[in-house]
Simulated assay, not measured.
Amino acid sequence: MKKLIMMVALVAATYGTFAQTVDLRRKVEVNGTAEKEVTPDIINVSISLKEYMDGKKKISISELEKQLEGAVSAAGIPKEDFTVNNVSGWNNATEKKKNPDFLASKQYGIRVRDLNKYNQLLSKVDPKGIQYTNITSYDYSKMPELKKELKLQALLAAKEKANYLVTALGDKLGKVLSISENDGGGSVYPQARMYSNVAMRSAVADAPESDIDFQKIKLSFQVNAVFEIQ
């Protein structure tokens, strides 16, 4: 008899636990997506200067660097946005002893917020001393705010989708039960570009308009939400 009572109690306890863990609420699960394109307003560029021979005269890195520093200052670019990235052979006494014709090079990083200023400073540097210039990366100054805005829009889109699906069945949408987010499709940035010495000579001479202003950053966010059906 005691064994029977214990078995009944065990079954009752198991059933009670099962009833507590199984969610019997009716639910609808949907995805919401939000996208937006913005024009980059922060552009990081790299410029490599290299010594060259003008006849028998060597145009030194110091001369080219002074030109670049002056151009950066004239363009109104803050000092903290102008840095030395790398030095190739600079102050390399051993190399210069081995090869008197050794030509040193030096790389600089510049952050610009107005592409016209970038074109302006390049026009004031001897194009023969520019080995190459490289657009290394792009960014958008209000990116954190934009991400929050898109995530909220994606969540509202999910709620709207869930509402019309549930309403179509004659039910009402209840409270949200869970929310999860993910990068829906990813963020698309413009391709970085590199221009050689020859291309830079042409660019400085012809001063063509750049199309970087039209190279958009595309952001896309997706939110997964589960709502209760009343």
Rank of each mutant, 00 (worst) to 15 (best):
S220L: 06
K151C: 07
M6L: 15
D101M: 13
Q230M: 08
P144K: 06
L103D: 06
E209S: 09
M200P: 04
V38M: 06
N31V: 02
K97W: 10
A154G: 03
V112P: 08
G32W: 11
A205F: 00
E149M: 10
S180G: 01
T133I: 08
E51F: 08
I212Q: 00
K50D: 06
E181F: 06
K2Y: 07
L150V: 07
A157G: 02
Q20S: 10
Y189W: 11
M143K: 13
D23W: 03
V22C: 01
N31G: 02
D23Y: 01
K159H: 04
G185P: 00
L219Q: 01
T17S: 14
I110K: 03
A207N: 12
F102I: 09
G16P: 09
V188E: 08
L10G: 08
F214R: 11
R111S: 05
S210P: 07
V22G: 00
Y132Q: 15
D54Q: 11
K172R: 14
P40L: 11
G109T: 09
S220Y: 04
Y118K: 03
S105Q: 07
L155H: 07
N44T: 13
K3I: 15
E63I: 14
A192M: 09
L115D: 01
I43N: 02
D213R: 12
R25E: 09
Q120L: 09
S60K: 09
T94W: 02
N99S: 14
A93Y: 12
L121V: 03
A203S: 14
L156Q: 14
